[in-house]
Design a protein around this nucleic acid. Structure first.
Lengths: 247, 247
DNA sequence: CTGACTTAGTGTATTTACCACACTAATATA
DNA sequence: TATATTAGTGTGGTAAATACACTAAGTCAG
């Protein structure tokens, strides 16, 4: 449930040796002009839309992979932290703030970008299905939401990144409260169950699910009820972060 | 148990906008000469020594943090992958190859290094206690092994990195086979239990431990026995990677 | 207004995982 | 030959996971 904070370092006695050999070994790549790799931040943004787990992608308008879809991202400014850069990207792409955000993995193989050496730190973000509406259909030509179970062909190795993201999401689902960040403040138990079912991609037993969730004490009954469609009305719950219960 | 592969990208329609503003926003840091962050790879190397979980550190010989201990690391060469860089570091520091290696986290706050902006990708390595002997005491003035439970004062925020490493190790202990990478090919059940006890820093029940491990079918009886000290001889087991059993 | 339809909400019995706990046998050493 | 040391083994109790089916509150169409 927690991601530790940033920071660290490296340069030490051994480092100078390395640095000296670094340029010597660099028998070019594409660009001898780039002695050092560039660093970008990419953000995998997922949300629930229409009872489906979807990811936000951007259509590339130039070489390489022109016309293909890609995960949004951009360079890290010299004076901002990686997380700040990820938040800025989010803000620029969707206009949303205060979403769940965690660092996923750093991808840095040489040759992953045909233009130059780029190391990218990938962040993973979850939007709740309500605030989601805000933008998303704005400059609809370039930006689109896609089901993670039915992806278009993707630029670079972004398909691999999305698979990794999905694995991580699934893994964290049952020992963290990550699922709540996909729902609005109030929700019914059935809606919560649906989040789990969509992400795990399998049916769950209703009674066992409710029993397990409620036994953790992590939910708070709002007293309100939700009436919708042709059903019986359902209780609305709220996530209680105070209750540091284990799922 | 698996770490996905490298690779990805970022530059897309939104990227250009970002890049333009990047330099504008960069109201210096220390170095306007560095328009872009440098990238290093640091390696947290742990091993079991004398019934203790220890980490390899290097003594700094210059500013900043002169005389303090730090995690070894170095710049990423322009033509090598992050993992390759981490392996190279390992090789340089300890002369060991083919160890367990996984990417841990990327730390990149501006100001984490007083000299310039450095983003570091931290890898986590485990050496088995046998091959360990190889070097380690070579240029003993600069390099040393320290108990993770009794650390010296560390350069930069390396203490935080080590805490994170230990947490990750503990977390993975019971749903992966990571523990085996700390042992030689053959080992007794008692030795395996000791690995768990040292890492989790608590005593485990012998019978329950054996029952659980053996029931997974992940161990293979070698037929051999180990006689040592003033004990009864013990069976030697071997890790069987084929048996894709869950711990 | 009535009948058909949809979903909320509830309990029990079975199986499986987890945990606490103590003695005997093989070997080395003094 | 006596002493010290560790390997190896089983059982019962408790908590968690799973499989499974019906009733009641509401909506909607006719």
């Amino acid at each position: 449930m927690e991601q530790t904070e940033e920071q660290s370092e490296s340069t030490n006695s051994a480092l100078k040796r390395v640095q000296e050999t670094a340029e010597a070994k660099a028998h070019t790549y594409d660009a001898s002009k780039y002695e050092r790799p560039s660093v970008t931040v990419d953000v995998v943004m997922m949300s629930l839309r229409k009872r489906d787990l979807q990811v936000l992608l951007i259509k590339r308008r130039s070489w390489p992979y022109e016309g293909m879809w890609a995960i949004p991202g951009g360079f890290v400014n010299i004076d901002e932290s990686l997380e700040t850069a990820a938040k800025r990207e989010l803000q620029e792409e969707t206009g949303v703030q205060d979403v769940y955000l965690e660092q996923l993995y750093t991808f840095g193989d040489p040759g992953r970008d045909p233009r130059t050496r780029v190391i990218t730190v990938v962040y993973f973000a979850l939007l709740d299905s309500e605030r989601l509406q805000v933008r998303a259909a704005d400059d609809a030509a370039d930006v689109g939401w896609f089901s993670v179970y039915d992806l278009p062909s993707l630029a670079f190795d972004h398909e691999k990144i999305l698979h990794y993201s999905l694995e991580r999401l699934r893994g964290k689902l049952d020992y963290t409260t990550i699922a709540f960040s996909l729902l609005p403040e109030q929700f019914t138990l059935r809606e919560l169950q649906r989040v789990y079912e969509i992400i795990l991609h399998k049916r769950l037993d209703k009674r066992n699910f409710r029993k397990k969730i409620l036994s953790t004490g992590i939910l708070e009954d709002t007293g309100a009820k939700k009436m919708e469609g042709t059903h019986r009305p359902a209780r609305l719950y709220r996530f209680n972060p105070e209750a540091e219960a284990k799922l």
